[in-house]
Design a protein around this nucleic acid. Structure first.
Lengths: 212, 212
DNA sequence: CGTGCGATGTATCGGTCCGATACATCGCGG
DNA sequence: CCGCGATGTATCGGACCGATACATCGCACG
């Protein structure tokens, strides 16, 4: 998961660890708290060992400026390699059942802009099926096993069931949008999903802001 | 987390591993998929080593019946000890910040029937604060950083924000219920939470069924 | 003027938990 | 009678987290 996210992010621009974590947190904030350095740094090393990323020189262009004044501490900037991009594409293409659990789905979804439509559909439908199964399980428990459980546990299941139903509806919209609407990168929704005065979506294109 | 859940479940009745996993899955189905044996068995061993649980004899009372015919394979039944119950109470009393993350909160909530009201309130409020913070983070990203993110990522954040708002409302109800309504074990809700044609809620009372 | 503190930055260690896998028994339907 | 799905125990490698350590930078406050 982390591997996938790092490769995805580094395709937008080279970054060092700290920055990577911040971007990761911003992009995945909806689905997980924050990446721990205890997983980030080891993973970076692993990716580097595999040849999917490399360390990039820190000083961008004006390299002669203040050459070794303060001795240039830390700040290891990583950039993705051609093999890394291949790897990323391969990870998308695989997109197996592990892609449908909460975290896995969220991370893949966050990189849908780099995923072809067929794969997007496959992932969305796989996720929907999985949530539907969870929903059925919860309905079973609430129906058949209700008397065995205390009121708090039941309330928890009800809340969970509600979340499932909501997510299925959300996925339905995304799928419909994806399928017919040919919404290449903009699911738009908003009309049915829940009002939001939006922010004038820039014509779908990339629009990444590089730090100066 | 697993330790807590196991101690909580074993207080209802002794069980062996397989059964424990099933009960755990039923009780926590709303918040996590299924406990892996790869964590369950090592944890059971750890708890046993700490003296919080012990192995119980398999054959209930009529022990002389078919003494060693088929040699009595497998089926290790665990039961909680007095120290184990103490440990469980201590884990509830601590209920620190780690209790407020998704899984931690869910597991603690599932055992609210064994938690005193003051602690329940503390946990619910801690959780609410945490979700409110996440919500603010998402609003920030959707507001300030929106142009840096692609449409899919934004949609993910919107969905996450929606879930946060919903959970805060849910928690508000639970807190109000807990605080004034003196709802000792029955949060009831359902009136304001969202329509549900329901299943004829049994009058709030306890209705705990111990396995005979 | 200095000093301390919050943000930036890299890194490791122990521990929890997962996913895959292996293996054995039981009851039942074909 | 045989296979297959449910029951049941168990291990191993790996992913990820939380705490911790440590060093630098800029700036606000005394």
């Amino acid at each position: 998961m982390l591997e996938f996210a790092i490769l995805g992010l580094l395709q937008e621009s080279p970054m060092h660890g700290y920055e990577l974590r911040k971007e990761l947190t911003a992009k995945l904030g909806a689905i997980r708290a924050a990446i721990s350095y205890g997983s980030l740094y080891p993973t970076l090393r692993r990716l580097q060992a595999a040849g999917w990323i490399t360390e990039a020189a820190e000083t961008p262009a004006t390299a002669e400026e203040v050459p070794a004044l303060t001795s240039r501490r830390g700040r290891v900037v990583y950039k993705i390699t051609a093999e890394g991009k291949e790897r990323f594409a391969q990870l998308i293409a695989q997109a197996g059942p592990e892609t449908y659990d909460d975290t896995g789905f969220g991370v893949h979804f966050a990189f849908f802009a780099r995923t072809d439509q067929a794969t997007r559909l496959r992932i969305l439908e796989g996720r929907r099926r999985k949530i539907e199964e969870r929903r059925e399980g919860l309905r079973d428990v609430l129906g058949r096993a209700a008397e065995r459980l205390d009121a708090y546990t039941l309330e928890l299941q009800r809340h969970g069931l509600d979340a499932c139903e909501r997510e299925v509806r959300w996925l339905e919209e995304l799928i419909a949008n994806e399928r017919s609407g040919r919404a290449p990168t903009a699911p738009h929704l908003g009309s049915a999903g829940g009002r939001r005065e939006d922010n004038s979506p820039p014509p779908p294109g990339e629009t990444r802001k590089e730090r100066p």
